[in-house]
Design a protein around this nucleic acid. Sequence first.
DNA 1: GGAACGATTGAT
DNA 2: TCAATCGTTCCT
Length: 217
Amino acid sequence: MADRIADFIDLERPPELVAPELLGCSVVCRGTAAVIVEAEAYHESEPAAHSYGRRITRRTQHLFGPPGTCYVYFTYGMHWCMNVVTGREGEGAAVLLRAAIPLTGVDLMRERRGRDRLRELCAGPARLVQALDVRETDGGRSMFDPRVETVAAALRRDRRAGPIIVRDVEAARSVGVELPLRAAQIATGRRIGISKAVELPWRFGLAESAWTSKPFS
DNA sequence: GGAACGATTGAT
DNA sequence: TCAATCGTTCCT
């Protein structure tokens, strides 16, 4: 099963190469779906990463799992964020999903978020997790299944199933994202909310998109 | 044991 | 600009 993940996207590479390829892919979870427009790369070799210094704790254990694993963490005493593990098992690399365009189950998202404005439902890592109802217990599970290739198929899974990522060209097109993306459509910049390794341009996003957590300047 | 600090968000 | 809020990290 794990070997077939490579048929989908080659996740066994550095996060700064995987992150831009996740743009335009759809995350589907518990009756909702959204198209990814912003993501950041983190690697154990730089101090902004939770895996820096090979710190393997209860919190970070899934960050060292096989590529495709979901890493969910709690922060600021109240928020949860989700990552996709990349690289080799035990490496500690991941891509933080930061923003997406709501695609399916918008009413559910509004209910979960307690907010109405479409623009703010999935624009931010903790907002995205809340809108999709991603849970702590989803950590450690794979976010890829080669048998599930479309948003519709992902939505047909067991309602209790956690987040899964698909590359659905039609779904992306329905919210104005044409795949494959051209290089010029991918913006890069400094990662948000960190105080170390701030110079790395490892934030990736859909250029000019109104759906990112912050504009790329 | 204790202090400081978050890969954030929403209100002022 | 600032408070909320609590697990993790790091120091004593």
